[in-house]
Design a binder for these strands. Structure first.
Lengths: 210, 210
DNA sequence: TGAAAGCCCGCATGCTCATGTGGCTGAGCA
DNA sequence: TGCTCAGCCACATGAGCATGCGGGCTTTCA
């Protein structure tokens, strides 16, 4: 039996959800809250449920902030967001904080029930519009993987630079002379079109060269 | 009328898809290919379609590699992946390359048709299992946002460091004395537990401090 | 009302860096 | 055969760096 908690300030909607979920075999809604604070209080001394249906856009503590707390105290508990918002920032924050599903409140109770089952079965239910948002953010944040024609050895040295080592340390690490490291740095600077190690490291990390 | 191209090496499946999509109002499957190479050749001289249904796991050029080419030549064309694979690496690469949907071949033709409509309407259809994969990757790659208690001014200077500026330039940029910048750098080094600008920049970029 | 913390400035010292110049080897290509 | 290019080494010099010390002024909060 999978236990579910609901956090939702709209009393009528909350009760409807509860009733519908309890009518399902294998699902049991054991607790419900009208604020995130109360949920956190309950988490402090009771066992966490398998899944939490969480309204973001609650009065008081933002549901978004709540996700982090939940994930800290009960990392295994699945969190399915229930919201009227569909904007990038909200979605982004929820996803980063570790939500496992993202539903719109306009969804039917059938859809919500199905989503709960999906999430429990290892899926991440979300509308395709929200999925698009997530994918867009992904491509935006993914490293660019530019190519400056660095050789393997050059990349190796660049990588060591990004760990904060100084020339001498790099030389020792690779059993080379500092002069040799010097030579590589020049070439790296030339290829990356920078003239300081800081610039090189910044470029390497920003563009995923290492 | 939305135009669709299909890239799929299994001839029978390709024809079925084509027939089903053409039976839909508003959709028209104008071309079909049994390899990625042929698709790219067609893209070179013909107008790109609105959407491409792409099989990854084709003989010859990988469909995955094909995505990048398609996105280069026709950035606006939506790409919906059709695959038997569900492993992290494939999904990750497809998502990074800019796919707008990710379907399993076990989907019914009705589901595929619906997915095509979803994608054209601005969504990113995918199964909830795949969505979970994407979300997991997202949390894995998202900046950690560690907090070292840096002040605003310190962050500002750290940020300027990540652009490759030297002390003097930072001082000029903020109309400060180099000595003041020195003082900040000390504090930043102390807080980040590093002792070179390279280390500071690396830590800042790796942990999303800026 | 006094301590703490953020912001700002100064100087000196020794270390590290960037960059100029030069050289040697071996692999691969034309 | 001669060329380029990656990899390695060397030395010198001026600029830039980290870090030691010192000071001041304001805001915040207990």
């Amino acid at each position: 039996m999978n236990t579910i908690w609901i956090v939702e300030d709209h009393a009528a909607f909350r009760r409807t959800l509860e009733r519908v979920l309890n009518a399902e075999t294998g699902l049991q809604c054991t607790r419900d809250f009208d604020s995130c604070e109360k949920l956190l209080a309950a988490l402090a001394h009771d066992d966490a449920p398998h899944l939490i249906l969480l309204d973001v856009g609650l009065p008081g503590m933002s549901g978004l902030a709540g996700i982090r707390f939940i994930k800290e105290r009960a990392p295994k508990t699945l969190i399915v967001i229930l919201t009227v918002f569909e904007d990038d920032d909200k979605v982004f924050q929820a996803v980063c904080a570790g939500a496992s599903g993202y539903l719109l409140k306009t969804s039917s109770v059938t859809e919500i029930t199905q989503a709960v089952r999906d999430a429990l079965a290892g899926g991440s239910p979300m509308t395709s519009r929200i999925a698009r948002r997530v994918l867009d953010m992904f491509t935006k944040f993914a490293p660019k993987h530019s190519d400056y024609g660095l050789s393997e050895r050059e990349k190796e040295i660049l990588q060591l630079m990004t760990t904060g080592l100084i020339k001498k340390e790099i030389a020792d690490r690779l059993t080379l002379s500092v002069h040799t490291v010097d030579t590589y740095l020049r070439r790296i600077y030339e290829k990356l079109e920078v003239n300081t190690r800081t610039g090189a490291v910044a470029k390497a990390l920003k563009e995923g060269l290492v």
